[in-house]
Nucleic acid binder design. Sequence first.
DNA 1: TATTGTTATACTCTATAACTATA
DNA 2: TATAGTTATAGAGTATAACAATA
Lengths: 172, 172
Amino acid sequence: MTVSKTAADTARPSRASRKDLVEPAADDSVLQLGELAGLLGYSLKRAQLKVFEDFLRCVAPLQLTPAQFSVLLLLDKNPGRNQTEIANTLGILRPNFVAMLDALESRDLCSRMRSANDRRSHIVVLTEKGRAVLARAKKFVANKHEARLIEVLGPEHHALMLEMLAKLAREF
Amino acid sequence: MTVSKTAADTARPSRASRKDLVEPAADDSVLQLGELAGLLGYSLKRAQLKVFEDFLRCVAPLQLTPAQFSVLLLLDKNPGRNQTEIANTLGILRPNFVAMLDALESRDLCSRMRSANDRRSHIVVLTEKGRAVLARAKKFVANKHEARLIEVLGPEHHALMLEMLAKLAREF
DNA sequence: TATTGTTATACTCTATAACTATA
DNA sequence: TATAGTTATAGAGTATAACAATA
């Protein structure tokens, strides 16, 4: 690599002063990922960002984020649970779950109820509107989002992928 | 579901007032994920978090995040590139790349040089120390991190997973 | 004393606009 | 005028400590 001294090597306190001049890359082709392509975590992250982007697009009419959708799904499947149980299952910290629930409750998608057993607990229930929005969201997700994933990966690879990702989330 | 009126239904403006009492879930078993388990994006996210956690543990002696490691790898593989080219390749926005490079440069892992062609560009180069740290990091990653991933998934599934994730990142 | 929901707070990531110096 | 690097800033997401009500 060619390196040549610059004359601006003297009293300049700015950020990039006193740096040598170097030759830029000869060709302007696309950069080589190199070993990055073999790093599972890197591909996992890039793929996850793409998939979440698509989820947002597919469900945009209902204005639901992946996290919000997962909360509604969990509430529907597990009635009578309190905030801590829902949050823990999703890996959300209890303090951070408060604002999330506030947002859903302000849209009348769910409601905090007092537990008949333990007056400290808030049982979180889906409202009628919440159930309706969830039903519509499920259709968008299945028909647009997951359908496209299955199309790109192929049904067998899609299923295999789910298995392996679940295994990583569980055992790793 | 049993729902009974509460007596505290009157003038209490607090957050959880005027709520009915509801029965909590009968059993305290683990919650059902339901259709969440079939959502690729959900498993993708949970798996990615686990994998990044493990990466941080494996490479902790060198104090490198996955993002920093990816920058060092890219610099090594693509000499003579400027900040914008490196950042774009990694999906990092140029403004956000400035602080990232500052951190690496302050640890003498890389260095900004002026381009001999274009005085606006900063060519980013690995320092000797940067090369040494990258070499050590590669070993930790291969021997501890990726080795464990291959062990958990099996070599064939690990390779298949990489392919499919790359396909998603590319085509989806 | 311990737990639930909450507040406050801080730190990281990400995203956009606008400035400067160069081209 | 357009581009590279930078600054400032704002918004998510995530993390911890501590408080009030209740157990």
